[in-house]
Amino acid sequence: MTSPLRREDVAHVAKLARLSLSDAELDQFTLQLGQILEHANDMSSLDLEGVIPTAHPFGLINVVRDDVVRPSLDRDEVLAMAPDAEDGRFAVPRIMGEAP
């Protein structure tokens, strides 16, 4: 985890996150994210082999609900908040590829 963050890494990540960055922002983010990751390198000195990662603070299990229908939202209210709607549905510009 010591490899320095490269500008092209930042550009790739921006694409994954659907953000477009100007050249100046790319430079700035490369620098700033690099600093933060460098700070994170203090963890790399640790031997954490065999430590179980924690994703949840508490160990609750099997939280489920009954399969009972509850009221849905009003379609008109929902579509009223959409940037674009048509024919009872949300409208978007053309989709360039199939879902993965």
């Binding site: 990540v13 983010f29 963890m43 640790l46 990662p53």
Partner: peptide, 23 residues
């Protein structure tokens, strides 16, 4: 968002996000 996307992305997950979960 950039930092988090990077920490989860292929090749970096274990070094960053995975290590952080162990910490």
């Amino acid at each position: 968002i950039m930092l988090g996307t990077y920490a989860l992305s292929a090749g970096y997950y274990d070094a960053y996000y995975g290590q952080a979960l162990k910490v």
